[in-house]
């Protein structure tokens, strides 16, 4: 990306936004693993799934976060990442509800 063409540094800002998002995801995954580690078999399973989803999100978003590969916006990455976040939320709900018994 030539600097003269883009004084607003839009691609860089977007790249950093992807990085921030993956960092936030990492923190949430750590919390999910910690909660799962106290929840027996179901907890261990959901912690494992959280780590797998985190890895998948990282692989999926890596080109956008680092600027490697072709520059692109939109596409399937966005809905997939959002579904991953929803999955994290739902597995958390499952763990919390299960902890009541």
């Amino acid at each position: 990306m030539s600097a003269g063409r883009d004084p607003g540094l839009q691609p860089e800002r977007t790249r950093l936004a992807w990085r921030r998002s993956m960092l936030a995801w990492t923190v949430v995954t750590a919390l999910a693993v910690r909660l799962g580690s106290t929840g027996g078999t179901v907890g261990a399973l959901s912690a494992g799934v959280a780590v797998l989803v985190w890895g998948a999100a990282l692989v999926l978003c890596w080109p956008r976060a680092t600027g490697t590969g072709p520059a692109r916006t939109g596409g399937r990455t966005l809905p997939l990442v959002a579904l991953g976040a929803l999955g994290l939320a739902l597995s958390g709900v499952l763990l919390v509800i299960r902890g009541l018994w």
Binding site: V27, L35, T38, A82, A85, A89, V96
Partner: peptide
């Protein structure tokens, strides 16, 4: 959304 999810996970533990 992730912050809310993280908040929920933190509240639970």
């Amino acid at each position: 959304g992730l912050a809310l999810v993280g908040g929920g996970l933190a509240a639970a533990q």
